[in-house]
Amino acid sequence: MLLIHCPYCEEERPEAEFRHAGEAHIARPQNIAEISDEEFERYFFIRSNPKGLVFERWRHIHGCARFFNAARDTVSDRFLKTYKAGEPKPALDGEG
């Protein structure tokens, strides 16, 4: 079980309190009703799923209930940083 630092609770809490919520920094288009099929496909269906550094959303669903973002290395399974929803994507390198 991982320990995850919740940026709202300001401490590490057990993974059982959290729920993963997919890739981060995919903003819903403001003009979603007007976008093309290709744009909708990119927004809704296509995910990067890289090996190494990923930016993902988590929700502290059984804690403060806030959504937040995390940078995690999928190779080492280490969290590099967690930060509040709406904050910019941090510049980070993966652990390799």
Binding site: R19, I61, R66, A85
Partner: peptide
């Protein structure tokens, strides 16, 4: 509720 919270917190904050 999770779905609503998701939109409220992250798309329509």
């Amino acid at each position: 509720l999770h779905h609503m919270e998701d939109y409220l917190q992250t798309e329509f904050p």
